[in-house]
Amino acid sequence: MSVVADSPAGAAGSTDMVSVRAVHKVFGHGHDAVHVLKGVDLDVARGEVTVILGPSGSGKSTLLRCINELEEITGGSVVVGGDLMGYRKDAKGTLHRLHPKVVARQRSRIGMVFQRFHLFPHMTALENIMEAPVQVRGLSKKAAKQRALELIERVGLTDRMDHYPAQLSGGQQQRVAIARALAMDPELMLFDEPTSALDPELVGEVLSVMQDLAKSGMTMIVVTHEIGFAREVADHVVFMDDGVIVESGPPSAVLDNPQEQRTRDFLAHVL
């Protein structure tokens, strides 16, 4: 395993795939306001796998959703692949909200895999994978099908390509969902607890697809409770609690020699 240094903050921002700066997220207004993210900084270098750990309600899923604009951030900035997400900064430094079309284009470069798969139930596995390339990229059906066949083979479901999601097991659905996200040739893949909704015996097949993806050099941010996956695949482990990053570093440091009490408590709980 190569030594992965902590990404130097500020230095060589261009090598960073993702750069999250002082991000705050508040849901609701006034008395009902919930402050979920309280100033989060995160850098993910190109080709790097970052695993975010933390108790439920710590804001890790929200952070993920803020990175691809499914949630609008309340403060701070998110830069993905050199592009400021959701806004344009003019010469005077004033922020302008981007048109939804432009935001959609920004999102199309980021793949996302959900806890509950969210496959389109009225489309077969293959049609699910073809949908975005045809509808968003304007790819011909033939070309999209060609690519979809490659991807479904990559996740090992060629014999299930004409099945509807309801006819697939959870693990198979999640593998189709991964293939669907990959069909857009994303520069970055976000995984939001991809194995949490699966029966224990189905977790392995999904993790192995993710592991292969990591080996192929994909930049990935993974929210998970699978400590084993984090130890084996992650270049970088981030521990979050109560809307802030408590501790981060290579897995050997964070998982085996945690410095913070909160991290130790959490790891004692899940291990």
Binding site: K101, A104, R105, R107, H118, F120, E131, V136
Partner: peptide, 27 residues
């Protein structure tokens, strides 16, 4: 229709009109 369907379509970069026609209305 499950809001997750719209989110998944959004995450793929689909625009609102397409999401309505291709994903939400059929369901």
């Amino acid at each position: 229709v499950d809001p997750g369907q719209t989110e998944a379509a959004k995450a793929l970069g689909m625009k609102d009109g397409k999401i309505m026609r291709r994903v939400v209305l059929p369901q």
